[in-house]
Structures are given as C-alpha cells and as structure tokens.
Simulated assay, not measured.
Amino acid sequence: MAVSKQYKRKFVYQDIVFYWYVNPDYDDEGKINVHILSNDKKFIVAYEIGQASIHKKNPFLVVMGNEFIGYSEKRTGYFRVRTPIWHDAVATPSFVKTIIEWCFSDKKEIVLVNWMGELV
C-alpha cells in the first residue's frame, strides 16, 4: 500500500521516492519530529528536531521500518540508533537529505541506544 501524500513533501534519493513531514509528538511532551518514509513503507524513521542544538545530548534516530542499511538482525518493534551531531534546529529539505544519506550509507557505525539516548 502506498503512502498518503497529503501534507507531505516529496524527496527523491537514488531513484527512491521518499515523503517527509513534521509534527509534534503529543505522547512525548509535544516534541517536534521529522518523519521520513519511503513510498513502499519499508524505510520509516523519525528524528526529534533540536536534539543536538537544544538538548545538548547525543542525538538518535528512531527506526520504525524494516529497512535500515547496516542493520540486519531480526527484531520486533522500533529501535534507536545514535546519529552524528547535525545542525538540527529546523527541518529543511537539506536536513532531510542529510538524514537519508546517513541512513543509506554503508560506512556508518551503528550504535543502539535506549529511549533516552543512552547506550544499550
């Protein structure tokens, strides 16, 4: 089933169509997240805006889809991966591109963290 395109921006990377949108997570104190997903919904990630610049902590990405380059272990549910420190104060198309490029890089180190960003 394809992605609903309403209220989402389109981004194409390596001939793969992605959609992204920004919204508050009311279950998590209203923190603003950028969500990125592929058209086939195999790749789905979320990143809290301002992790590195506002909270001064190690930022992480929540992986919700089944496809994530470099991580092939069987799992159920979401997992969180530490990311580089980016300029993440605002969700822009260039920031979304940075996230996608990092996710599809096979040269990244995958460090799993818990919901607070601490090493697992």
Rank of each mutant, 00 (worst) to 15 (best):
M1L: 08
A2I: 14
A2Q: 11
V3K: 15
Q6T: 13
K8R: 13
R9C: 03
F11V: 07
Y13V: 12
Q14N: 13
D15C: 09
D15W: 06
I16V: 14
V17R: 05
V17A: 15
F18S: 00
Y19H: 03
W20L: 02
V22C: 08
N23I: 06
N23V: 01
P24Q: 10
P24M: 07
Y26P: 03
D27F: 07
D28K: 15
E29M: 10
G30M: 11
G30N: 09
I32A: 08
V34H: 09
V34G: 06
H35I: 00
H35R: 05
I36V: 06
S38G: 00
N39W: 01
D40C: 02
K41V: 08
K42P: 04
F43K: 04
V45C: 06
A46G: 04
Y47R: 04
E48G: 04
Q51L: 12
A52C: 02
A52E: 00
A52R: 05
S53L: 08
S53W: 04
S53Y: 08
H55R: 15
F60E: 00
L61M: 07
V63I: 15
N66W: 05
E67Y: 05
I69H: 11
G70I: 03
G70P: 03
Y71A: 07
S72V: 02
S72N: 10
S72K: 03
E73R: 12
K74F: 14
R75W: 00
G77S: 00
Y78V: 08
Y78F: 13
Y78M: 13
F79P: 02
F79H: 00
R80I: 15
R80N: 14
R80C: 15
V81D: 00
R82V: 02
T83G: 02
I85R: 08
I85M: 07
W86Q: 04
W86E: 05
H87Y: 04
D88M: 07
A89D: 15
A89M: 14
V90P: 04
T92G: 01
T92S: 06
T92L: 12
P93C: 00
P93F: 03
P93Y: 04
S94D: 09
S94Q: 11
F95M: 03
T98K: 07
T98N: 15
I99V: 12
I100L: 12
E101V: 06
W102L: 10
S105P: 01
S105A: 13
D106W: 08
K107Y: 11
K108P: 07
I110D: 05
L112H: 05
V113H: 01
E118A: 13
E118M: 12
L119N: 10
L119R: 12
L119M: 07
V120P: 02
